[in-house]
């Protein structure tokens, strides 16, 4: 019987591409309502690990459950319960804000009425009333990002996967974006976020640091700093990379 407080659980999860092992036997648990940071340098295997969890990649070995469902056999069930925001923001640039919301709401099977209500609430929360009929391509990057995140949450998923959501935006917008993430976590949504910005790690409840496909450290930011005798996450990361 799966524990309802466990959102994600993996055991020896591995992905090999030919002779290259992208993700090497990772084992961890993510609790319900937690903000779980998945850190690592580019190419450390963060995105591959995430794609095995959200059904885009088939694992080579190991076990994993997401929202209590098995990633091998029950990916259809998983897909209904997760939201996903890819590195590229995944909005249609030639559609307006409203049309994007309507489309993504539609593919998750929301009713027309629900879409209308959610659109209104979302547009109000993001202060986008004036641009709701503007094409997404003319919005600033930070807005696109917030919109993309809100759309990933449109169907009230239990878990939301964010793949480097803050790439290429300024620190102020990044801070605003993290406020949205906190709001979601407070409503009970589990947030699984990958990043290579070490300062963002401080915002997470717990973090795991991946180096060359393995999880080298896992814990709260405070624990990790204490264990490595570091003043900030940057130092933790550098020490880990050097010890290797």
């Amino acid at each position: 019987m799966p524990d309802p407080q466990i959102a994600i659980k993996t055991d020896g999860l591995t992905k090999e591409f030919g002779s290259f092992t992208a993700v090497n036997a990772i084992t961890f648990e993510v609790h319900r309502g937690e903000i779980f940071g998945f850190l690592g340098a580019n190419g450390a295997g963060k995105t591959t690990a995430m794609k095995m969890l959200n059904g885009l990649l088939k694992p080579t070995r190991g076990r994993a459950t997401v929202a209590g469902f098995d990633v091998y056999r029950e990916s259809e069930q998983i897909k209904k319960r997760i939201g996903y925001m890819s590195q590229k923001f995944s909005l249609y640039e030639d559609l307006t804000v409203r049309e994007n919301i309507r489309f993504y709401g539609g593919i998750y099977g929301l009713s027309r009425k629900a879409i209308r209500e959610k659109t209104a609430a979302l547009v109000e929360r993001l202060h986008m009333e004036e641009v709701k009929d503007t094409l997404v391509k003319s919005l600033p990057l930070g807005w696109k990002q917030k919109l993309s995140f809100s759309i990933a949450l449109l169907h009230d998923p239990a878990i939301v996967f964010l793949d480097e959501p803050t790439g290429g935006v300024d620190p102020v917008t990044r801070r605003q974006f993290w406020n949205l993430i906190y709001d979601a976590a407070e409503r009970g949504v589990t947030v699984f976020v990958t990043t290579h910005y070490m300062d963002e790690a401080e915002y997470c409840g717990r973090i795991s640091i991946m180096v060359d496909g393995r999880i080298e450290a896992l814990g709260t930011p405070g624990e990790l700093k204490a264990r490595f005798g570091a003043a900030n996450m940057d130092e933790v990361f550098l020490k880990l990379a050097r010890n290797k």
């Binding site: 590195q87 590229k88 249609y92 593919i107 998750y108």
Partner: peptide
């Protein structure tokens, strides 16, 4: 290219 295909494939469709 836009990355929307990934999102579509991660959805229940």
């Amino acid at each position: 290219e836009l990355g929307t295909m990934e999102v579509l494939l991660a959805s229940p469709i």
